[in-house]
Design a protein around this nucleic acid. Sequence first.
DNA 1: CTGAAAGCGCTAACAC
DNA 2: GTGTTAGCGCTTTCAG
Lengths: 343, 343
Amino acid sequence: MEELAESNGRRSVRMADVAAHAGVALGTVSHVLNHPEKVSPHTLERVRRSIDELGFVPNSRARALAAGTSSMIAFIVIDLGNSFFLDMARGAELEAQERGLNLVLANCDMNTDKELVYLSLFDAERMAGVLIAPLPSSADDQWRLQEWQSDVVALNVDASGRGCCVTTDDELGGYLAAQHLIEAGCRRLLFTGGPFSLLPIADRYRGAQRAVAEADGVSLELLRTLQTKPADGRKVGDALAARAADARPDGVLAATDLIAFGIIEALGVQGVSVPDDVKVIGYDNNRQAWESTVPISTMAQPGEEMGRHAVRLLVDEIRNPGSHEHEHVRLTPTLIARESTGT
Amino acid sequence: MEELAESNGRRSVRMADVAAHAGVALGTVSHVLNHPEKVSPHTLERVRRSIDELGFVPNSRARALAAGTSSMIAFIVIDLGNSFFLDMARGAELEAQERGLNLVLANCDMNTDKELVYLSLFDAERMAGVLIAPLPSSADDQWRLQEWQSDVVALNVDASGRGCCVTTDDELGGYLAAQHLIEAGCRRLLFTGGPFSLLPIADRYRGAQRAVAEADGVSLELLRTLQTKPADGRKVGDALAARAADARPDGVLAATDLIAFGIIEALGVQGVSVPDDVKVIGYDNNRQAWESTVPISTMAQPGEEMGRHAVRLLVDEIRNPGSHEHEHVRLTPTLIARESTGT
DNA sequence: CTGAAAGCGCTAACAC
DNA sequence: GTGTTAGCGCTTTCAG
């Protein structure tokens, strides 16, 4: 099981070698690396030259062991193929870099078991901290049940009470999306998406319900899908196209852009015009759906901002173990109106 | 610059704590972890219980330091937003896992400077090995100029002479793609893509030239683009649509699927039919282009296989520092015929 | 300002 | 089988 790699042949040069080469004590070399201001210019120069000449690369593992600190943080992502998560990673990386931390990624590839595997790995590796963007299911996340060595902050999932987290307000997003459709003149709305075990989807639906309840003479129908892919959308589109025109919704709220994409495509093929006959709005501002023939209106989630915030929370937790209080940062999605809901 | 994270508050339980708790020596605890067969069932049981009760998580850093080994490898990727590279990561992860190694990812986000930054980081962290899929430009890769502590194998780039690498044969891919077009009846081919500083693109063009040279009465035109995005393709599509029908190529070989996608879209808008008027083939089997209204024929690169191979080479290099010989594995792209070149 | 020495948490001989 | 001990490469007091 735990088949380890053997160290590679060449033995790397150690600090002691540098010290010998420069004719100083080992501690002095350490000082030029960590507290150069406390070393005389002359020694500094000499040691530095030795470092260069020998090609010395400080061993961070040893350093971390001795100093009890590390500059590595890890981000465990449920699906790096989803541009939303990749955006988070970008934001996290930028923020980490600005704070002198290094970010590595782990891809769970939609396999929730891997969340735990990687969490354990990084825990054992004594990362300074770890970020995790799990599958936002309603089931109690396994990883939350454990106490971890490293500080961890969750993204895209409500981990209140157990730790820091940053989410976007999906209920509000659903509300705003529905409102946009209503303002565009739609009266017979349809919400489609699934599975509802995904909290964000359930929340988006609730938001849509609220918007509809607040409006007069607007109805809301629900059509569940099994997944969130274009194929699911195409099925919905076909079903809709098969209906009589007056039995058709005039506004569709798709739980994801990918679904919206499928719907628009299927509708187009069957001669139903978007946005003339039916207006469609998606959710996620997913790059994969950017190239739709009819540009898709959508609710954009601030992925990069989420990543940045998460790192900020993490750093606070790492640096102020005493005073730190867990926080739930809730960001707001933004409406991006494009052609699919235009006039 | 090197602003480190401070260790978090709670001090984790060490092996010594476990030993004390179980009433055995520290070395014994180490044994139950690394050589359980050499420990009496009774002690084993007791130590294991102590480990559980105390929530002991072995410190891999210390372990790596003491043992001189590590099970972590890293994959530095030029662009995780590109599904081709993500496929490599998937393959690498699977292969790594089967060999008891753990894979972490680093995203350069199309920033070549980051390649070096991450390489240095992982070098200092004394990773067991590192994989790198850089920007395949013709410029001499900076990272190749240095001797690294860790073993490194390159993906998607020819690093012969300096280390192991695994690539796909782009020249052959271009050849096969052109041949496919010719067999589909095309006589006036157009190759479009760019910039040519990207080696794969130049190679694909060379392959197309070879196929055309081998065929009778087939011409090949070249239309360079600045980048490899759908927008570049749309420009090409518009230019083509603006031509008189008989001045138009009847077969287009796009250097990437994204370009092909843009071309098909632009052509469609202008009333030029794909594949009836013009056949189009792309390259990469990019998921982002899968949802095109006209499914795009393409040359698929075996990303996952590349990742697996790379890990195999890396492992050999790590385990047999003496006998290991650098190897260049060249994989073959596969034609995927879809509608855009259909009849 | 520089050197010596005591660990950091763990592995791997080597003894008992 | 189990305990003891000497490092792994580095940081960091603490004397000189």
